[in-house]
């Protein structure tokens, strides 16, 4: 057995083993999704039971006359029972008959209602289709208009939220004494959809370090704007993901 032979057998074995494992894993995993059985909890109705004392067996009387009387009484009782049972049976039959009739009637009515309903639905659908076709025709022309409107609407919403942010930030801003008119600092605020500020970056310095710092601190102090949570993601992505703000000492302006 040469070296070459032992190495080539070993290589073959190894590759075969890995392929086998790969195939096994790929197959098993796909089939392993058994349906999950939902086991409903079993309920047991609890009822209050009334405890009754068991009737005690009556002491027997070995009196033959009494026995005969007893037998007679039982016979009478049995006859009575039979009669009653028959009457009951008849009554039940009648009732069943009645019920059947009522049911048939009900079914007929249901079927009718169903039919009517279906017709109604078909009619409605036809109408809707017609309406839709009409609308489509109309909207084909109006589509661009509507988009423009939506954008405008977004713009309005965004500006109202901007106003909120401005108010909050300017409330936190303490202008340094070295601030002069005409200074201007521009910064980019990164926000996440929950309204938290993830980073504040000054893109255009005012030239005054204290001023820049005060501006940055004002934004940091605000920490988060929870109102932004209510915003649609479309508007958020467009306007608030990277928010650009310009600060001037006389006012806070965008």
């Amino acid at each position: 057995m040469g070296k070459w032979f032992s190495y080539s057998t070993a290589t073959l074995c190894s590759i075969a083993l890995h392929l086998g494992v790969a195939v096994l894993v790929a197959n098993k995993w796909g089939h392993e999704e058994t349906e999950r059985k939902i086991v409903a909890p079993k309920y047991i109705d609890a009822k209050l039971l009334q405890l009754k004392e068991k009737e005690k067996p009556k002491p027997k009387k070995d009196n033959s006359a009494a026995k005969r009387r007893e037998q007679e009484r039982q016979k009478k009782l049995a006859a009575e029972k039979k009669r009653k049972a028959e009457a009951e049976k008849k009554r039940k039959q009648q009732e069943a008959e009645k019920r059947r009739k009522a049911e048939a009637e009900k079914k007929r009515k249901q079927a009718e209602a169903e039919k009517k309903r279906r017709e109604e639905a078909a009619r409605k659908q036809r109408e809707q289709e017609r309406q839709k076709a009409l609308e489509d025709e109309l909207f084909g022309e109006l589509d661009e208009d509507i988009e423009g409107q939506i954008a405008e609407n977004d713009e309005q919403v965004a500006s109202s939220y901007l106003a909120i942010i401005q108010r909050r930030v300017s409330g936190n801003w303490s202008r340094p004494p070295s601030a002069r008119l005409g200074m201007e600092a521009e910064l980019i605020i990164q926000l996440v959809p929950t309204g938290r500020i993830t980073s504040v970056r000054i893109v255009k310095s005012s030239g005054n370090a204290a001023f820049d710092q005060s501006v940055e601190q004002a934004v940091q102090k605000a920490d988060s704007f929870p109102e932004l949570k209510n915003l649609e993601s479309r508007v958020f992505e467009k306007h608030f993901r990277n928010l650009r703000m310009v600060f001037r000492p006389e006012d806070l302006r965008m």
Partner: peptide
Amino acid sequence: LVLASIVSWVMIVQRGLFLNQ
């Protein structure tokens, strides 16, 4: 990792044969 596993199995089998012999 796959390569390491393949090569190590080559070694395992080869060593096994060699030591046995």
